[in-house]
């Protein structure tokens, strides 16, 4: 029986020996560079950051004086207020987007691009074997279908992980070259248990990356499932991308009217809102969302597994 490691090795060979994969990596580097150059060209330098923060504090105070403000939103504003006051007190400049850390944090938006690429890889992983006809030779080896499926899934997630590392690498190099590393020691101001604390900026960047991955993992798993059910990679890619872009909007609309919207997948994928934002539906917490994501994760994977294991291969 082959070990799962050699099966993953095989899947990796099938991912990285293809030109399209290297095209994706090139595109990611290019997008990161373009993002940095656009930021540099369009960003307006703020002359006096202290005045800016002071006026922000003023606005926050005005908003907070409103009695009808929902409690959740009020908490969020109070946190913002405390952090801004801390800034003035300790002379800590907010991180502008045209700085090393500013662009690093913003580069997390590129994870959407990685999600797109990973969806393509995931969808192709199963469906292509069917369309190439290679599935027949793949499944007549002394490896159970479950094991082969697991190796494909693992190789896909490994690809996503590599892309994330590459993004981190690309953006730090490009950011350092384009914006310089003058303010590299700036701390990140976090709000913990009623106090403002200074934390490591790199830690913050990695956390932002990590929290952005919820959509990545869920949509990849979804594409994987569709490709196992319909054996059609275009359908899997199309459906996953369509859902990714429309799902968030539709869920937001539904959440305004219905409480049950909190059980929808896309109500839970944006974990970042629990750190510096407001929950979509009142009462939602980070642990609730993680639990929901876990449930969806199990459901998607079970479907994939049940179908792939039992299917007659007639391709």
């Amino acid at each position: 029986m082959p070990s799962i490691i050699s099966l993953i090795q095989n899947e990796n060979m099938k991912i990285y020996r293809r030109i399209s994969t290297w095209f994706m990596i090139g595109l990611l580097a290019l997008a990161t560079l373009a993002g940095a150059l656009i930021t540099k060209a369009t960003h307006k330098e703020q002359q006096n950051w202290k005045a800016g923060v002071a006026s922000e504090i003023q606005t926050l105070k005005e908003q907070l004086s409103d009695e009808k403000l929902p409690k959740m939103y009020k908490n969020h504003l109070e946190q913002q207020l405390k952090i801004n006051e801390y800034r003035l007190e300790h002379d800590i400049r907010p991180v502008p987007s045209n700085s090393f850390w500013g662009y690093m944090v913003n580069s997390a938006d590129m994870i959407q691009l990685i999600t797109l690429f990973t969806i393509i890889v995931a969808a192709g992983s199963i469906a292509s074997e069917f369309s190439w006809g290679t599935i027949k030779l793949l499944l007549i080896r002394p490896a159970s279908r479950s094991k082969i499926l697991l190796s494909k899934y693992a190789a896909t997630l490994l690809f996503a992980f590599c892309m994330l590392l590459l993004l981190l690498m690309f953006s730090s190099i490009i950011s350092a070259i384009v914006f310089g590393i003058d303010h590299i020691r700036t701390p990140y101001l976090a709000y913990q248990n009623g106090n403002v604390v200074e934390t490591n900026m790199l830690f913050h960047v990695i956390r932002v990356y990590g929290l952005n991955c919820a959509t990545l993992v869920m949509m990849t798993t979804f594409a994987f499932m569709i490709s196992a059910i319909f054996r059609n990679s275009s359908l899997a890619i199309g459906l996953a991308i369509f859902l990714m872009f429309v799902g968030t909007e539709v869920t937001a609309l539904l959440a305004m009217k219905f409480k049950w919207a909190k059980y929808l997948l896309f109500a839970n994928t944006d974990l970042l809102r629990y750190i510096d934002g407001v929950p979509l539906v009142k009462g939602m917490t980070m642990s609730f969302s993680i639990l929901m994501l876990f449930v969806y994760f199990i459901v998607f994977n079970s479907f994939t597994w049940l179908i792939f294991r039992k299917r007659d291969i007639a391709a």
Partner: peptide, 10 residues
């Protein structure tokens, strides 16, 4: 089984 289909890009 049927045609010997292989990974063409390898």
């Amino acid at each position: 089984v049927e045609n010997p289909e292989m990974y063409k890009f390898l």
